[in-house]
Simulated scan of single mutants.
Amino acid sequence: MREQNASSTSFIETIAGFTAGIVSTLTLHPLDLLKTRLQVDSISRTRVVGSSTRLLRHIYTREGGIAAFYRGLTPNIIGNSTSWAAYFLFYGNIKQALSRRGGSGGDSKELGASEYFFASGAAGILTALLTNPIWVLKTRMLSTGSAAPGAYTSFIAGARQILKHEGFAGFYRGLVPALFGVSHGAFQFMAYEKLKAYRTSTTTTATTTTSSTTAANANNSRNSLGTLDLLGISGLSKVFAGCITYPYQVLRTRLQSYNAAIVYRGVWDVTRQIWRQEGITGFYKGLGPNLLRVLPGTWVTFLVYENTKGVLYKSIG
């Protein structure tokens, strides 16, 4: 019975994460494109809203109108849906393993902040190793217009170009900062789980001791949270993690850009160059669009994830 429940939970986590990734990407891809363009800009020292407005105007007038804002949509959908599906699959199974190991008499125990941090970090590392090639393709397609010299015409064409000119290692450019960025997810999910547990405890009138709380009971109580609860919890956790870890995204994007092999010798070199040429604020380029994207993206992702998961749990019974 335990194996069947574990199998059902893994299936639910995977499908819920996959669905959340697709919906959030379709909704917010243009902001992702804008953020990427600003992150790869190593010349301009402006990071104000005005530069974003000028870039939006440039993309619209010179790269093909509204359709230009959806360049790179295919790798972004593949990357986000695959990443969220893999992440929630790994994360759910690691949490279950930690909970069962710490329980007694077959019961599951409530995890602490450090255990949520570990589970999220481990899931993030596995997901990064699995999906980094997709993010290299996505970054390169989003960072240039379709008419730019050497621009990839499609996801498959880009993969062939990388394999031909850079070899297999080309698919893993930017992996080091991406692995460092795992800390973002770890901080986010640690905060998310603890805030969710706290909110659940304050809204539940009939309390149950944590030592006897089963996985099914935990899921039911979490699914009882309303939309406003999930918006607040997911938003706070994302802002918390984003304020701590944003610079790694700039490093990763620079290392995954078209000319990275020529301009940068590695993660420490790009760090030194940004610091020397652009100062501390260079590590926060694109933060404005990222903040505009991060909360709607988080809200959409977690609302779709939690509601899809709730529907699936009910349908499976």
Rank of each mutant, 00 (worst) to 15 (best):
L255E: 00
N223H: 11
T205N: 10
R272C: 11
L228I: 09
Y60C: 08
N5A: 15
T271Y: 08
D32L: 14
F117N: 06
F302R: 01
S108Y: 15
Q39Y: 05
G64L: 01
D41Y: 07
G124I: 02
A191F: 13
W84I: 03
Y198L: 02
G286Q: 13
I233N: 00
V48Y: 05
I94W: 05
I15E: 03
Y70F: 06
L130T: 10
T25F: 06
Q249R: 13
I280Q: 07
N80R: 12
V136P: 02
G112K: 11
A191P: 02
R2M: 10
D32R: 09
K309F: 07
T36Q: 00
R37K: 03
M1C: 04
G297A: 09
Y246T: 04
A97R: 08
G282L: 12
A216S: 11
A260Y: 03
S234W: 02
R222H: 13
G297S: 15
N80P: 06
A241K: 02
W275T: 13
T46R: 12
T214A: 04
Y246H: 02
D107V: 10
I59Q: 00
P177M: 04
G17T: 00
L129Y: 06
A216M: 10
G50E: 10
V182Q: 12
S52K: 05
F118L: 13
T46D: 09
G235W: 07
S42A: 14
T14N: 10
R2N: 09
A147L: 14
